[in-house]
Nucleic acid binder design. Structure first.
Lengths: 154, 154
DNA sequence: CGCGCGCGCGGAATATTCTTCCATGCCAGG
DNA sequence: CCTGGCATGGAAGAATATTCCGCGCGCGCG
């Protein structure tokens, strides 16, 4: 790990996590350093990979992606090639927000955003169960999003 | 819903989702409109809630949150009060990134970020099973993050 | 048809901000 | 004490944001 984070770096990180479009001037004032110093600190956070990117969080319902579904997947075989093929295929599916290889009753957990249940059923039938090596899937429709994509606490 | 999105709005939305710190000038040029128009469009996207916020995505491993865990939760009773109490308590736990009420074998699905397994075991024993109304939890350690928090496709 | 209205556009001007350069202060090692 | 390395803040020129203005277009009404 290239560098450690002092109090100011942490402050900048937290500020940018909450408001990614804060100007450098605003950051500097809140963090209590000069604009020049703040600018250097911020750039370092980007350059050294502490900030992987800055993203506008689009409201899903506003763009017709109001339905959230969690899906547990079990594969036929537990071979490295089997896993690799599945993961390669998953990467093409844009509606998959999360895909994690897990230990437990499932091989993978998926988090999927679609327009509605009908939308999901089509996708499930046409694309999910057709993924390479899939033995079974278990679908958990989300009825209420209590917390979705909360900011990281550090 | 207040307004629809034309081709330019969509372009700006997608650009900002991928690079939330693009300047208005850059946005304008890429979207093919004047800076003034682009500025108005962008502000509307914020004002009308199409963009819920802009967030710097902090690299979890860089800040000591490299471990991801999915947890299925079953409550004792399925009453509205029982759900409400659980949700209220969950909101205080900063390490919970997602908490969704689902239909199926579980009542809730949680996505949790911590430092490591030991960290999680402590939290599980001290905080998760102590949440109001929890009958049982099932833990799925994430062994590989294939896709994490992918941008929305719209 | 012609007219006026509303709307969104781009250009221009001002205010703000970014970005870099430079000189200073601080600290550790010789 | 001196020296080198390093991070800082101030200052200045370049870039940007934000607002104001007049224009053109389409639409509905007289």
């Amino acid at each position: 790990m290239p560098g450690r984070l002092d109090r100011i770096d942490l402050k900048v990180l937290r500020l940018l996590q909450n408001s990614g479009r804060l100007t450098n001037a605003e950051l500097a004032e809140t963090a209590g350093v000069s604009a020049a110093t703040c600018h250097r600190r911020t750039q370092r956070l980007f350059d050294e990979g502490f900030i992987a990117g800055v993203r506008a969080m689009v409201a899903p319902r506003k763009v017709g992606k109001g339905a959230l579904v969690m899906v547990g997947v079990v594969l036929d075989r537990s071979t490295p090639e089997s896993f690799a093929a599945f993961e390669r295929a998953i990467a093409r599916l844009k509606f998959v927000l999360d895909c994690h290889l897990v230990a437990g009753d499932f091989d993978y957990f998926l988090k999927i955003r679609v327009g509605d249940m009908e939308d999901f059923n089509r996708i499930h039938g046409e694309q999910l169960i057709a993924l390479p090596g899939v033995r079974q899937t278990r679908t958990f429709f989300v009825m209420k999003e209590v917390v979705d994509n909360a900011p990281l606490d550090f």
